[in-house]
Protein backbone atom coordinates (compact mmCIF):
# COMPACT_ATOMS: atom_id res chain seq x y z
CA UNK A 1 0.00 0.00 0.00
CA UNK A 2 1.41 3.35 -0.95
CA UNK A 3 0.20 6.73 -2.05
CA UNK A 4 0.30 5.74 -5.71
CA UNK A 5 -1.78 2.60 -5.22
CA UNK A 6 -5.41 2.31 -4.22
CA UNK A 7 -5.79 2.13 -0.44
CA UNK A 8 -6.01 -1.42 0.89
CA UNK A 9 -8.97 -0.67 3.06
CA UNK A 10 -12.01 -0.05 1.00
CA UNK A 11 -13.31 2.37 3.61
CA UNK A 12 -10.36 4.73 3.72
CA UNK A 13 -12.28 7.23 5.79
CA UNK A 14 -12.20 4.72 8.65
CA UNK A 15 -8.40 4.50 8.49
CA UNK A 16 -7.17 5.22 12.02
CA UNK A 17 -5.37 8.42 12.89
CA UNK A 18 -1.86 8.21 14.23
CA UNK A 19 -1.19 10.04 17.48
CA UNK A 20 1.37 12.32 15.81
CA UNK A 21 -1.25 13.42 13.34
CA UNK A 22 -3.97 13.85 15.91
CA UNK A 23 -1.76 15.97 18.15
CA UNK A 24 -0.53 18.12 15.30
CA UNK A 25 -4.03 18.71 13.95
CA UNK A 26 -5.16 19.94 17.35
CA UNK A 27 -2.14 22.25 17.71
CA UNK A 28 -2.47 23.58 14.16
CA UNK A 29 -6.19 24.13 14.61
CA UNK A 30 -5.64 26.14 17.79
CA UNK A 31 -3.00 28.23 16.03
CA UNK A 32 -5.39 28.91 13.15
CA UNK A 33 -8.05 30.10 15.57
CA UNK A 34 -5.54 32.37 17.33
CA UNK A 35 -4.59 33.94 14.01
CA UNK A 36 -8.21 34.45 13.15
CA UNK A 37 -8.88 36.03 16.52
CA UNK A 38 -5.91 38.40 16.05
CA UNK A 39 -7.42 39.86 12.90
CA UNK A 40 -10.80 40.36 14.47
CA UNK A 41 -9.34 41.57 17.77
CA UNK A 42 -7.15 44.16 16.07
CA UNK A 43 -10.27 45.79 14.71
CA UNK A 44 -11.41 46.27 18.29
CA UNK A 45 -8.16 47.05 20.08
CA UNK A 46 -5.63 47.88 17.37
CA UNK A 47 -4.88 51.31 15.93
CA UNK A 48 -3.99 50.32 12.38
CA UNK A 49 -7.02 49.18 10.43
CA UNK A 50 -7.59 50.12 6.84
CA UNK A 51 -10.85 51.98 6.37
CA UNK A 52 -13.27 50.61 3.81
CA UNK A 53 -15.12 53.88 3.23
CA UNK A 54 -15.40 54.07 -0.56
CA UNK A 55 -17.38 56.11 -3.07
CA UNK A 56 -17.70 55.88 -6.80
CA UNK A 57 -16.11 58.91 -8.40
CA UNK A 58 -14.95 60.37 -11.72
CA UNK A 59 -11.75 62.24 -12.54
CA UNK A 60 -13.69 65.52 -13.01
CA UNK A 61 -15.50 65.26 -9.68
CA UNK A 62 -12.42 64.34 -7.73
CA UNK A 63 -10.15 66.94 -9.38
CA UNK A 64 -12.61 69.63 -8.49
CA UNK A 65 -12.67 68.69 -4.81
CA UNK A 66 -8.88 68.43 -4.75
CA UNK A 67 -8.58 71.82 -6.46
CA UNK A 68 -10.86 73.42 -3.84
CA UNK A 69 -8.64 72.23 -1.02
CA UNK A 70 -5.54 73.40 -2.87
CA UNK A 71 -7.08 76.85 -3.44
CA UNK A 72 -7.98 77.17 0.22
CA UNK A 73 -4.97 75.77 2.03
CA UNK A 74 -1.88 76.17 -0.12
CA UNK A 75 0.95 77.54 2.01
CA UNK A 76 3.80 77.53 -0.51
CA UNK A 77 5.00 75.97 -3.75
CA UNK A 78 7.89 73.57 -4.18
CA UNK A 79 10.21 72.31 -6.92
CA UNK A 80 10.48 73.92 -10.35
CA UNK A 81 7.12 72.36 -11.22
CA UNK A 82 5.57 74.69 -8.62
CA UNK A 83 3.74 71.87 -6.84
CA UNK A 84 1.42 73.36 -4.20
CA UNK A 85 1.98 72.35 -0.58
CA UNK A 86 -1.35 72.23 1.25
CA UNK A 87 -1.64 72.48 5.00
CA UNK A 88 -5.25 71.66 5.83
CA UNK A 89 -6.65 72.03 9.36
CA UNK A 90 -6.57 68.88 11.53
CA UNK A 91 -9.63 66.73 11.13
CA UNK A 92 -10.36 67.94 7.63
CA UNK A 93 -10.60 66.18 4.31
CA UNK A 94 -7.41 66.00 2.26
CA UNK A 95 -7.40 64.96 -1.38
CA UNK A 96 -4.48 63.22 -3.03
CA UNK A 97 -4.61 62.74 -6.78
CA UNK A 98 -2.72 59.86 -8.36
CA UNK A 99 -2.12 60.26 -12.08
CA UNK A 100 0.46 59.51 -14.77
CA UNK A 101 3.04 60.04 -13.26
CA UNK A 102 2.80 62.03 -10.07
CA UNK A 103 1.06 62.41 -6.74
CA UNK A 104 -0.55 65.81 -6.42
CA UNK A 105 -0.41 68.02 -4.34
CA UNK A 106 2.24 67.86 -1.59
CA UNK A 107 0.54 67.55 1.79
CA UNK A 108 1.63 68.98 5.14
CA UNK A 109 0.08 67.42 8.24
CA UNK A 110 0.48 67.83 11.97
CA UNK A 111 1.76 65.10 14.20
CA UNK A 112 -0.81 63.14 16.22
CA UNK A 113 -3.72 64.81 14.43
CA UNK A 114 -6.19 62.82 12.37
CA UNK A 115 -7.10 63.60 8.75
CA UNK A 116 -9.39 62.06 6.21
CA UNK A 117 -7.21 61.27 3.25
CA UNK A 118 -9.12 60.77 0.00
CA UNK A 119 -7.36 58.68 -2.62
CA UNK A 120 -8.20 57.96 -6.22
CA UNK A 121 -6.56 57.56 -9.59
CA UNK A 122 -7.26 59.62 -12.68
CA UNK A 123 -6.22 56.84 -15.06
CA UNK A 124 -4.71 53.43 -14.29
CA UNK A 125 -4.22 51.61 -11.01
CA UNK A 126 -1.50 53.16 -8.84
CA UNK A 127 0.04 52.13 -5.54
CA UNK A 128 0.27 54.46 -2.55
CA UNK A 129 3.45 53.39 -0.79
CA UNK A 130 4.36 55.64 2.12
CA UNK A 131 8.08 55.50 2.89
CA UNK A 132 9.89 54.90 5.16
CA UNK A 133 6.80 53.94 7.15
CA UNK A 134 5.99 51.24 4.60
CA UNK A 135 2.22 51.51 4.52
CA UNK A 136 0.87 50.40 1.15
CA UNK A 137 -2.60 51.02 -0.27
CA UNK A 138 -3.98 50.21 -3.71
CA UNK A 139 -5.38 53.19 -5.62
CA UNK A 140 -8.07 52.18 -8.10
CA UNK A 141 -9.56 54.46 -10.77
CA UNK A 142 -13.25 55.22 -10.38
CA UNK A 143 -13.19 54.64 -6.62
CA UNK A 144 -12.60 57.25 -3.95
CA UNK A 145 -11.09 55.62 -0.89
CA UNK A 146 -11.30 57.61 2.35
CA UNK A 147 -8.62 56.61 4.82
CA UNK A 148 -8.26 58.21 8.24
CA UNK A 149 -4.59 58.71 8.97
CA UNK A 150 -2.87 59.82 12.18
CA UNK A 151 0.86 60.45 11.68
CA UNK A 152 2.75 59.53 14.83
CA UNK A 153 6.19 60.83 13.78
CA UNK A 154 7.27 64.12 12.28
CA UNK A 155 9.52 64.40 9.29
CA UNK A 156 9.52 64.15 5.51
CA UNK A 157 7.76 61.16 4.00
CA UNK A 158 7.75 59.99 0.42
CA UNK A 159 5.03 58.41 -1.60
CA UNK A 160 6.36 55.87 -4.07
CA UNK A 161 4.04 54.38 -6.69
CA UNK A 162 4.16 50.63 -6.29
CA UNK A 163 1.58 49.50 -8.80
CA UNK A 164 2.86 49.28 -12.36
CA UNK A 165 1.29 52.18 -14.25
CA UNK A 166 3.25 52.51 -17.47
CA UNK A 167 6.59 53.68 -18.64
CA UNK A 168 6.95 56.52 -16.10
CA UNK A 169 5.97 54.32 -13.17
CA UNK A 170 9.42 54.24 -11.60
CA UNK A 171 9.61 58.04 -11.45
CA UNK A 172 6.21 58.59 -9.85
CA UNK A 173 6.87 60.19 -6.48
CA UNK A 174 5.01 62.35 -4.00
CA UNK A 175 5.59 63.86 -0.58
CA UNK A 176 3.96 64.30 2.80
CA UNK A 177 5.45 66.54 5.49
CA UNK A 178 4.55 66.02 9.12
CA UNK A 179 5.21 68.92 11.48
Amino acid sequence: MSAILPPAERLWWKHPLDRVEGTWIVIAFIWCMIMFAMMVGWHIYGKQNLSTETYKTTPELFSKKAQDVVDKYTVRKETDKEIPVVHPPPGSDVYLVARLWDWWPIIELEKDKTYKLHLTSMDFNHGFSLQPVNINIQVVPGYEHVVKVTPNQSGTFSIVCNEFCGIGHANMAGRIYVK
Binding site: T79, S158, F164, N171, A173
Partner: peptide
Protein backbone atom coordinates in the same frame (compact mmCIF):
# COMPACT_ATOMS: atom_id res chain seq x y z
CA UNK B 1 10.32 44.43 0.64
CA UNK B 2 10.36 45.00 4.37
CA UNK B 3 12.49 48.06 3.66
CA UNK B 4 9.86 49.31 1.22
CA UNK B 5 11.34 48.40 -2.18
CA UNK B 6 8.54 48.12 -4.76
CA UNK B 7 7.88 45.22 -7.07
CA UNK B 8 7.58 45.75 -10.86
CA UNK B 9 9.78 48.79 -10.51
CA UNK B 10 12.50 49.69 -12.95
CA UNK B 11 14.56 52.13 -10.92
CA UNK B 12 15.00 52.37 -7.16
CA UNK B 13 16.57 55.80 -7.56
CA UNK B 14 13.31 56.94 -9.20
CA UNK B 15 15.01 58.60 -12.16
CA UNK B 16 16.26 61.44 -10.01
CA UNK B 17 12.72 62.78 -9.58
CA UNK B 18 12.85 65.81 -7.22
CA UNK B 19 10.49 64.15 -4.76
CA UNK B 20 12.19 60.76 -4.99
CA UNK B 21 12.51 58.63 -1.90
CA UNK B 22 16.05 57.79 -1.03
CA UNK B 23 16.04 54.12 -0.12
CA UNK B 24 18.43 53.15 2.70
Amino acid sequence: GTLGVSRRHWDMAMGGSPLAYEFP
